[in-house]
Design a protein around this nucleic acid. Sequence first.
DNA 1: ACTTACGGTAAGTCATGACGAACGCACACA
DNA 2: TGTGTGCGTTCGTCATGACTTACCGTAAGT
Lengths: 107, 107
Amino acid sequence: MTNAHTILSALGDPTRQAILDLLLEGPQPVGELAALLPVSRPAVSQHLKVLKEVGLVVDRQEGTRRVYRVDPAGLAPVRAYLDRFWKQAMVAFAQYAEDHPTEEQHR
Amino acid sequence: MTNAHTILSALGDPTRQAILDLLLEGPQPVGELAALLPVSRPAVSQHLKVLKEVGLVVDRQEGTRRVYRVDPAGLAPVRAYLDRFWKQAMVAFAQYAEDHPTEEQHR
DNA sequence: ACTTACGGTAAGTCATGACGAACGCACACA
DNA sequence: TGTGTGCGTTCGTCATGACTTACCGTAAGT
């Protein structure tokens, strides 16, 4: 399981997707995120832990609050993986089209 | 839940990631995929159903066999989403760095 | 028609993980 | 030092979904 795969697994959860979408607006503390989401604060905390482990977010202690923000660098592996994947898919597609000419243009 | 979110959820499963990686080598029938994976053929079949529903793969009847291949176009939404996400994350990061010039400014 | 190969589907089991309640800790301020 | 706030963590519960077994349909070949 590559790094990109781990990140993709983390991105698979809808709640984590929602958290990331919220953090995209700007850095926010845990309580603020929980208030905007249909889940409890501990749930948000656990999701943030996962996101932090895979490098998608970073946190910063600010008094009694802990502010999270997305880490652009954390997305690099997924972007690289998907780009490589996309190129490879195109190659496979081209080769497939070569072996199987469309029914209309060739017989 | 946008289209990109649905696709990301589909990409979250390790077995589906493995199936896609295998299909990247070229189109393959279900049995072939199952032989290369540590799961049963029905399991592969169910995963392929999910991947097909989100548009990541397409299938083609070939005699008694059903050949699956990755659909490059199916990746477009995720790529677009991640690109937008990345750009937005950069903006948020820049703004954050602006608000916090040095690490020790708060009393 | 029988047989074999291949794959989708139904049903049931089981493990993963998402979740909330309760608790403890650190920080800020009086 | 006491009080309140904000979070992380632990623990137990519960639902989702990944998986296998069994079955059925379909497409060639004999």
